[in-house]
Each structure stands twice: as C-alpha cells, then as structure tokens.
Design a binder for these strands. Structure first.
Length: 482
RNA sequence: CGGGGUAUAGCGCAGCCUGGUAGCGCGAUAGUUUUGGGAACUAUAGGUCGCAGGUUCGAAUCCUGCUGCCCCGACCA
C-alpha cells in the first residue's frame, strides 16, 4: 500500500478523503441544515436510490420495529447486534441526531467528539476496567497495548476536563458528543433496540457543588423533554435507581409501548403534560417544570412502590403498561473526579472534586422506538420531524406523457421549496407502489395517474390519518409546500 | 452465562429419518398480454447444501469437532 501510494498519490488521496467522510458519517456528524454537507434538501428518484425492500418478513425479526426496518430497507444485519444503516434508515438516524444536537446546543451544552477506542489504563484509574466484565470489548494493538471499544465515556471526559479546568470560575460546563459505542451484550435482540454497536448521545456536566449540579441536571431534564417531544414521542421521566449516591437525581425517559422491555407504573395524566416550548429560558429557574413532571407517580418496575402508587394515584388514573428506555439523566457527584483527581478550586480557595452528572440518549435505539410508537398494519408512520422524506410521489403510469409531466412538475416544485421528496418513477404496478409508500411511511403521498389527470387532479394522501384529497396539481403543490 | 433450536439460491422453506443427477414459492432477468391497492403466461439465470475432519464405491443426508445465527431465561441504553 505504501509503495502504491508513493507512485501515484491519487489512490492515497481518495482513500484519505473516504476515510474522513466515513468517519464523519459514522460518528453521526452533521453540519447544520437538512442534509449532510449542504443545506439542500434531498430530492431523489427511486430508480436512482438504494431501497432494498423485502416482501417477506425475515424470520429472525420478532418485534414490529425490527421487522419493518428490515422490510423497508433501512438496515441490514452484519453480525449479531451489529447493523449497517442503509440510505433510508441513515436519513432517519441523521434526523434524530439533528434534533438531539439542536436541543443540546439550545440548552447550553457544548459538542465535542471523543474516540471510540480508549486506553485500558484510563479505566484502571477509575477502577472500572476490572469491574466492567465481559460486556466490554477489549482489544490489543500491535504493541500489545491494551485498548477497549468504549461502552461509555465518563473516564475520558474526566481526563479531558481535568487537563485544563481548575477554577470554579470556569464552571459550569456541559460537554457532549454523539458517538458509536459498543457493549458486548450476551444476547442482542430486537434489532437496533438492543444492538451491541449503538449510536449514543452522552453529555457530562461539571459543577462546583451539588446545588450547581442540580441546575445542570434540570437543564438536561428539560432538554430531554423537548428532544422527545419534537419527535412526537411521549417519553415520560420516571424515577430510576440512583446507585450509591442516593438522592432523587436520576430519571429514565421511557416511551410507552406495549412491546417495551420493562414494566412501568404511572399516573395516566402524566401523558398529557405540556412539553416546554422553544422559548424556554434555560437560564431561568427550571424547577417549576421539573416539579410538574416529577410530582405525578411514574416509576419503572425496578423501583416501583405499590403502596405509594396506590396512595398517590386514584384508581382510575393508575396506568400499568410497558415502556422503552430512550434516555437517562443521572447525577453521580465525584464518582470519577475523586479517584481520577479532577479538583476544582472554589471561591473559598479550597480544592474539591467537581460534581458531575451524565445524560444519555440512545440515538440509534430511538429509531426503533419511534417505529414501535408509530406504525399500523401497512407499515411505518413517520412523525414529520424525523421522516426520511416528507413527500413520496407515486407515478402510477411511467411513460404516460401526462403522468410523467405532472409528476415532474410536482417534483420540481417541491425541490424548489426545499422539501425532501422521494419520486417513485419505477415502471411498476400501482399496487406495489402503494404498498411500498405505505410501508416506508412518508408523511404525505402524491398519487399521480391517468385516471386522476383525466379529471385534472392528483390524489394527496396523509399517511397518519389515511385521509385522501383529490386536488389539482397546483393545489397539491400549495398544500405540500404550506 | 444457563436451556432449546437452527444453518440448503437474494428472502421464506422442503429434501435428511431410509445415502444414489439439489428442489418449491416469492424475488431477479427477457419476452408477451396486462395496469388505480403487491397481475398472468413462457423462458432464463442464480447453490463450495455454514466450516473442517471421518465413515462409504458414493454424503445436503450418517458420525465427530468447530463456527455463525435465532428463541426462552438471567443481565442490560
């Protein structure tokens, strides 16, 4: 390879560019805007796209999200719990990533990117290298140095933090990244819901004392309400185990779904609480919002207290169901900053370990959770914010002059309006096109065919409601670009 | 990590018990007829039968070992 590169640097250059791009994509990196590396929308003809639809259900897929992700050509399994994200799935993953990033930034968190591989010695400092067990994937490099594929990043962020921050004047800080993690689960299952490799947003807060740490915790708590709310999910914060630290500063955010992995108990009214608006002031006192969301009973089975549930919740409001954990917020104090020696000088001149919390969102898992929460017998029903395309155009008779012209007119109008659109220009039978569009779940479908056009109309179907309207081409464009 | 399965064409499966030219449906390709909710007919292509040993004249089939994958449980974002 080295010789080859010396002779002709072009392949080396190509390889180099490819490596950067793939690393950036894999890390979930995405500049601001609706699409990677540009602000342009994705306008795509299905004949040029890569959408490997499966007509039959793969036998290994047990739950609906896994089944639909495979059938809709969103993912392909490469090993147990390890998936390739195909174009349609990757677009959804990017959209979820974008929302997480926007809301973290809005809440005052600062993004960085830590590596997937970490030195074992770093984990020996916290004592977790030996404590972690076989879920940690351990690797040796050519020099026999011990490495691991990170399952989380508390040690590394603490190392980064201690290298440069010494004074309370530099606090508070909330740092986050969105990076692939690996946990060698004994039994991966449910597709991306419990894979071994998974994309996670993890944030870490550093504060001078517990009172300040609580403010950081509240910021993340509110940011999480917004993240999940924007995706159209009812994610309910539930008291979780706090471990050795104790206190009340740990919540799991749970999406209610009958197929969820854990049992949950809550007051039914918690589902109808309002999501903080885009104008929420993160510098203001957030405790009223926290109080509103933590007063009604809501707990996973691990910490459920039946007597308390009954005491606090009227019988007709008691909801027992199942849920999927999509995020967690957790205050753990000086668990890492003390053994790893990350001291802060306080206003009184004395040193003390920084007080920390960590805040995770299972980004790749969220894609599965979104489908669990939004589907019907025909397939996926994407919430608009995360949909891979906003509109699908089905040309029912490719080759028919009027159908082709009307389809292209709509296609170009949506392109001009910067709306993501997928144009099904395949020479296929109508039934197949309807089934495909329903399954991949784009919010709006435009059905273009000779029968409608004879009367001057196309059909606009809203996937979520099934509602259909016969509109002129112009009216359809107006509706979809509104 | 315990228990139970399974591996044959892109997907779903039969064949294995009782060894003898590797099959079916869907999908793919080509043609014809079709065409508003997954069409019909005809033809074609596509396989180291998970891997490695062994038994045998001959192994997808019997034996041994290994590996991948799936399900139940425990565990976990």
């Amino acid at each position: 390879m080295a010789l080859f590169c010396l002779r002709d640097n072009r392949p080396a250059c190509l390889f180099f560019c490819f490596a950067i791009v793939s690393a950036a994509i894999k890390s979930g990196y995405r500049p601001r805007g609706r699409s990677p590396f540009s602000a342009e929308p994705i306008i795509m003809r299905l004949t040029r796209y890569f959408l490997p639809i499966l007509r039959e259900t793969p036998k290994e897929a047990e739950i609906v999200s896994h089944r639909l992700m495979l059938r809709a050509g969103m993912i392909r399994q490469e090993a147990a719990g390890i998936y390739a994200w195909l174009p349609l799935g990757f677009k959804v993953l990017q959209n979820v990533t974008r929302i997480v990033r926007e809301e973290m930034d809005r809440a005052g968190a600062v993004e960085l990117l830590m590596p997937t591989l970490q030195l074992a010695d770093l984990w020996r400092e916290s004592g977790r290298y030996d404590a972690y067990g076989p879920e940690m994937l351990r690797i040796k490099d050519r020099h026999e140095r011990e490495l691991l594929y990170g399952p989380t990043n508390e040690e590394m962020i603490t190392e980064i933090f201690r290298a440069s921050v010494r004074s309370y004047r530099d606090l508070p800080k909330i740092l986050y990244h969105i990076q692939w993690k690996f946990r060698d689960e004994q039994r991966p299952r449910f597709g991306v819901m419990r894979g071994r490799e998974f994309l996670m947003k993890d944030a870490y807060s550093f504060d001078v004392d517990e009172a300040a740490a609580r403010l950081s915790y509240n910021r993340m708590f509110v940011a999480y309400l917004r993240i999940f709310g924007r995706m159209g999910l009812k994610a309910i914060p539930m008291r979780a185990e706090t471990g050795p630290i104790g206190g009340d500063l740990s919540h799991e955010f749970i999406v209610l779904a009958a197929t969820g992995e854990s049992g949950v108990y809550c007051n039914a009214d918690v589902r109808d609480l309002p999501i903080p608006g885009i104008d929420v002031d993160y510098d203001s006192d957030l405790t009223p919002i926290i109080r509103e969301w933590t007063t009604l009973y809501a707990a996973t089975e691990d910490v459920h207290d039946e007597a308390r549930f009954h005491a606090e919740t009227p019988a007709e409001k008691r909801l027992q169901t199942r849920g999927i954990e999509v995020g967690q917020v957790f205050y753990f104090g000086d668990k890492y900053t003390r053994p790893m020696k990350a001291p802060i000088t306080g206003p009184d001149g004395s040193e003390r370990p920084a007080q920390c919390g960590s805040y995770g969102v299972g980004v790749s898992r969220l894609v599965g959770a979104l489908i669990e929460a939004n589907h019907d017998d025909a397939g996926i029903i994407w919430p608009e914010e995360v949909a891979p395309f906003r509109v699908g155009i089905a040309n029912l008779k490719v080759g028919d002059a009027a159908s082709d012209a009307a389809s292209m007119q709509i296609y170009h109008a949506l392109e001009k309006a910067k709306i993501d659109v997928l144009y099904d220009d395949r020479d296929e039978r109508p039934g197949g096109k309807f089934a495909t569009l329903d399954m991949i779940g784009l919010p709006y479908q435009v059905i273009v065919g000779p029968k409608g056009l004879a009367g001057g109309t196309v059909e606009v179907k809203t996937r979520a409601t099934g509602a259909r309207e016969n509109l002129s081409v112009e009216a359809a464009i107006a509706k979809l670009t509104a």
